[in-house]
Design a protein around this nucleic acid. Structure first.
Lengths: 339, 339
DNA sequence: TTGTACGCGTTATCAA
DNA sequence: TTGATAACGCGTACAA
């Protein structure tokens, strides 16, 4: 009984000594690599289990040349988009034997650098970024230090798993226009980051229809969207429909409408983006563009694994197509099309 | 110009050589420990910066006796409760110079062990668990390997940051009873885990009022709660109010009510638990028990730091008091009290 | 198939 | 104040 005394967990050396073999053999056996006889492997595993051996991932990462861990950056935890993306990533990473290291940013972007630095300091082999708000240059700088895959955002010279944001925005505008809306506002993400596809799609779609664009920039919070909406409603000619760059912003729009005594879908139509679980709640019933977020996560993970394996392959932008899901938040305007 | 060639990031050795000092001195200077003259420290920092030196957290963790990283387990990413808890934790951990390592479980509890193992294999100094569904014995087993702080759940013999769940449940039942409801059902969490305070509070409150309890167990998903609700509604005497053990479950209840053509707050009242951002949406307007989740996170983090510093101190259960937030999902029953 | 020996990038101890 | 030097726990050629 030499197991677990002093509170410290046994090392490979302890296991090797106990099993009467060398430490190298224990390493091979435990990792499932080949080079051990079945008999001694079984024996080693049994001893390790009996001693309560727990691998030291820190030491393993330091010793091994090839880092099997993938870092994942998520903008924040207040948007189920990132939960979906994470699930997509995990579904492919975990059954490839690799580990995931998470880093969480913040809606106001103040923690992006810190979070990315923490991933690099953990020496992950590759990182998947979902919701980085840093300018392209900064992202590219990080990508020089460690292979980087971007998702939901295209960055020149960097692998990315995307959904066609311009097409998605056009779906939204087209839908609202078909309902009869003419004055359609857009809550866009801040210029500073690279998420401008939806804005461009909106502008193109409006121009195609001879409509005047009305864009307001908002930070990635529900409160900021609500505030922007209040400003929009105070205009001389307020919009009859608002297309938000994501569902969280759309919820902020709904907050502001409610506060202003307006009924969503009757007084003002709202379209979101991401088709998150919240949009699907019957009480919310938010029309939204579905970018198949879990698929984005899986695509990003596949790109990451490929990049980690073959660093010199050509950059790939893997793009999927969005889909509009119509719900009750978008309906014909109260007074029909007014020109 | 010896910086950044070959793509590999420079090590402390490189910095030491470049600065003309020993590696030990570089370590001291970079960590801000004392034992360096101001002049050579400034010099070292300058050289490190010029070379683009980035600390290797893996090597640091392996070498240092005292692990400054704290592991955090979250049940999953589909419940903003855990986002709040995480924020609370981070607010105290990050300005203590420590790092956070995240591990995410799943609503069906199948990944709890794996996630906890990954934290232990990362050799974190202490772990904070939010939403562990393992039985007490298992949790205690993990706590023997690494100091553990539980939050939102009490585990005998383990530090915990809690909110009085029994009191919270009594608030909910008391509120519904005062509205005139007599047939009040409860969606409880699975027996297997340690979250039985809300159930007990519900049962006590019902008993106090001479009402018959009606408990259904559900997994931690919206879908499971919806399904359970459908079963409740099919009863000969369906409940006029449903108290769910958390907001996500309450949303599932609302899904089922909607699917059954019933109006929330009119046909059936609903009360949730956690007062998450979703409950606050005007369209949802869910009455919910607020357990001040961010505070729980901060308390848990403080307990974790204390435990890491002084492992032999007495176990502490830090408990705060819940608060009921009334919204439109709970209103008097259609036909008033019947009995 | 098994064992030896070196290296990974730090921290930490002890002399100088 | 500085600077060798020994851990830390494991991966991995290479030799046996």
């Amino acid at each position: 009984m030499s197991a677990s005394k002093g509170g410290k967990s046994p090392t490979m050396d302890d296991v090797a000594r106990e099993a009467g073999v060398s430490r190298a053999l224990v390493s091979i056996a435990l990792r499932g690599a080949n080079g051990v006889s079945d008999s001694s492997r079984a024996h080693i595993l049994k001893v390790a289990k009996r001693m309560g051996y727990r691998p030291n991932a820190v030491a393993a990462r330091l010793a091994s040349k090839t880092s099997l861990t993938v870092g994942v950056f998520l903008l924040d935890l207040y948007n189920y988009v990132f939960a979906d993306i994470y699930e997509g990533i995990r579904s492919v990473i975990s059954n490839s034997g690799r580990h995931i290291v998470l880093a969480i940013g913040s809606a106001d972007a103040t923690r992006d650098v810190e979070a990315m630095e923490s991933l690099l300091e953990s020496r992950v082999g590759v990182v998947i970024a979902a919701g980085l708000q840093l300018p392209d240059r900064e992202v590219q700088r990080f990508a020089r230090a460690t292979p980087l895959v971007s998702t939901t955002r295209a960055v020149p010279g960097i692998d990315s798993a995307l959904c066609d944001d311009q097409a998605g925005a056009q779906l939204a505008v087209s839908h609202l226009h078909a309902l009869g809306h003419r004055r359609i506002a857009h809550l866009a993400s801040p210029q500073r980051d690279g998420y401008q596809g939806r804005r461009r799609g909106y502008q193109a779609a409006m121009a195609d229809r001879g409509l005047a664009p009305l864009v307001v920039e908002v930070e990635y919070t529900q409160a900021a969207a609500a505030e922007a909406t209040t400003r929009l409603l105070a205009l001389a000619e307020p919009p009859s429909a608002i297309f938000a760059n994501n569902d969280v912003a759309a919820l902020g729009v709904m907050d502001a409408l409610d506060a202003g005594g307006l009924v969503v879908g009757e007084d003002v139509s709202v379209v979101g983006y991401d088709n998150t679980p919240v949009a699907q709640l019957p009480a919310v019933s938010l029309t939204s563009v579905d970018q198949h977020t879990a698929l984005l996560g899986r695509n990003a993970a596949e790109l990451a694994l490929r990049r980690a394996a073959r660093p010199d392959e050509a950059i790939e932008h893997r793009t999927s197509q969005p889909e509009l899901v119509v719900r009750r938040s978008s309906r014909p305007p109260r007074f029909g099309p007014r020109t």
